[in-house]
Computed example of a mutant assay.
Amino acid sequence: MKIAIISVSKKGQKVALDLKDKLDGDSTIIKTDLYHKNVKKYFPILFYEYDAIVAIMASGILIRSIAPLVESKLTDPAIVNIDDNANFVISTLSGHLGGANDLTNKISKLIGATPVITTSTDVNERLGIDVIAKDLYLSIDRPKEILYFNKAILEGREISFTVNPNKDFGYLFDYLNEKTHKIDVSIYYSSKVDENKILVSLDEHEMTLTEKKIVAGIGCRRGKECGEIYKGLKKSMTDLNLPISRVNMLSSAEIKKDEQGILKLSRELEIPVSFVDLEKLKLFESKDVAKSEFVKSKFGINGVCEPSALIMAGFDSKLIYKKTSYDGVTIAIAVSC
Rank of each mutant, 00 (worst) to 15 (best):
S7G: 02
K11C: 01
K14S: 05
A16D: 07
L17G: 05
L19P: 07
L19D: 06
K22C: 03
D26K: 14
H36A: 05
K37T: 06
K41L: 08
I53T: 01
A55E: 01
I56P: 05
S59W: 03
G60I: 02
G60K: 12
L62C: 13
A67H: 09
E71I: 10
K73W: 09
D76H: 13
N81G: 00
I82G: 04
A86I: 05
A86L: 03
N87V: 00
F88M: 11
S91H: 12
S91F: 04
S91T: 02
S94C: 07
G98Q: 07
T104P: 02
I107V: 13
L110P: 08
L110A: 06
T114F: 13
V116W: 09
I117F: 09
S120V: 03
R126Y: 03
G128W: 04
I129D: 06
Y137F: 14
Y137N: 08
S139Y: 12
E145Q: 14
L147G: 01
L147N: 13
Y148S: 09
N150Q: 02
I153S: 07
E155C: 00
G156L: 08
F161K: 06
F161C: 00
N164I: 02
K167Y: 10
G170Y: 07
Y175N: 03
E178V: 03
K179Y: 13
K179G: 03
S191Y: 13
V193K: 08
E195S: 14
E195C: 03
L199W: 06
E204T: 02
E211Q: 11
I214P: 05
V215G: 10
I218D: 06
G219M: 06
E225M: 08
T238C: 08
N241K: 15
P243T: 08
I255Q: 09
K256Y: 06
K257W: 04
Q260G: 01
P272C: 02
V273S: 04
L278A: 05
E279K: 15
K280N: 12
K280F: 12
L283E: 15
K287H: 02
K287C: 01
S292Y: 11
V295C: 11
S297R: 13
K298H: 11
G300H: 04
G300Y: 11
V304T: 11
V304F: 09
P307T: 09
S308V: 02
A309G: 04
G314A: 03
F315R: 14
D316V: 00
S317C: 02
L319P: 03
K322E: 00
Y326H: 13
Y326R: 06
G328Q: 12
I333V: 15
